[in-house]
Design a protein around this nucleic acid. Structure first.
Lengths: 203, 203
DNA sequence: TGACAATGTTACCGATCGGTACGTATAGGT
DNA sequence: ACCTATACGTACCGATCGGTAACATTGTCA
């Protein structure tokens, strides 16, 4: 396997055995998300994956690249999830975003919830050129773009302000969930978003 | 800049006791805030402080305790700053919180801004019993209490929801500032808070 | 069966991690 | 001048960090 890693769901023509790389990525995903990237060493990743260190470095050029791959997968899953809410309410951006935020709020009630892996990674790696941070920043820029577009489609007086406001609430919910646990402010995410949307529409 | 004690025939009274500890704490404060606690080793702290490692461990029992002390100082400065906004508009909680949020938004425009040291530390240390996280959680709990109380004093329909909404916006601004830089969503923090407050008041 | 690629095994690297034993230098009080 | 207390520095600790070299083993397909 190459050291150039994309999110490539085992379409390997010959062998379907990406087993080692997949197990490593699955282990990294769990450990990195729950405990943080810096807190987890590569030894712990390979131990949990049931493989050895050379196997990791055959599939990933470095720990940083493994972290970036973990985030690329996170990005993929995030948008998949986001699109579900979009498709659930065609042509109704207000219902779309509210449905999505309700989902985040619901999930943030789970006891082991640790917020957004992207956001957390950006906090862990402030250096602008770190591969993990690059993925995270790209994801957030696209999210901002989408939210502003949805705010515009809702007919907001100032779409950029509303889109940014919704993003602030969302990011706040991600962080608050891991700070306060199940009974934190994230519970009222959708309610506050609804109020903010109402107050931002024309008329 | 070199602050060698040979060149400087300073008053090495027993105030020198605090000097090493103060220099260490000042160095730790700067490094921990800008680069993260896990990213900075104790060697780097003492090097920046111009002291040696044993000096650190004479004043702080461990790196974790140094981090907790850094956050306790952060907590003190935070509330000092918060109280300034409160005192600037006596009896007007709406103006108080808006003034505070405007200050956060203004500061978040500065290029090296890295959000809230408390929030960042909580992301870096998910373990509930870590000394740094304990300080952070306590600070956030008190902040939530204050915001809810202010929302109540404003006459909000549902004070807890509004207080939590303002907290979501604030935490979102902390995070967004370091994710997006000066032109990020944090710019619209006060505007969105104002809208949310308006929409949350009775009548 | 033979070729080949993926994976495992073992041992190792230099650097850095947080932390400390122990001797030295300097102060103030007498 | 001397004593004592204490701040400070030198040198070091074992553990762990991310990462690698060299070779053995396995499974799959031609």
């Amino acid at each position: 396997m190459r050291t150039d890693n994309k999110i490539e769901p085992a379409i390997r023509t010959r062998h379907a055995t990406n087993r080692a790389a997949d197990r490593i990525l699955a282990a990294a995903r769990d450990l990195f998300y729950k405990q943080g990237i810096r807190a987890i060493g590569v030894d712990e990743v390979v131990r949990k994956a049931g493989v050895t260190k050379p196997s990791l470095y055959r599939s990933f050029s470095s720990k940083d690249e493994l972290a970036a791959t973990y985030l690329r997968q996170y990005d993929h899953d995030f948008w998949e999830h986001f699109e579900e809410s979009v498709k659930a309410f065609p042509g109704d951006p207000r219902a779309q975003i509210l449905h999505f935020l309700e989902g985040v709020a619901r999930r943030s009630q789970k006891p082991r919830y640790r917020g957004c892996g992207m956001t957390n990674a950006a906090v862990e790696y402030p250096e602008p050129d770190h591969p993990a941070r690059r993925v995270s920043e790209e994801n957030k820029k696209e999210l901002r773009r989408r939210l502003r577009a949805m705010a515009s489609a809702m007919g907001a007086r100032d779409p950029d302000d509303l889109g940014d406001g919704l993003l602030l609430l969302l990011e706040g919910a991600y962080i608050s969930a891991q700070l306060f646990g199940p009974d934190g402010p994230s519970r009222s995410l959708a309610r506050n978003a609804e109020l903010l949307i109402e107050a931002s529409l024309r008329g």
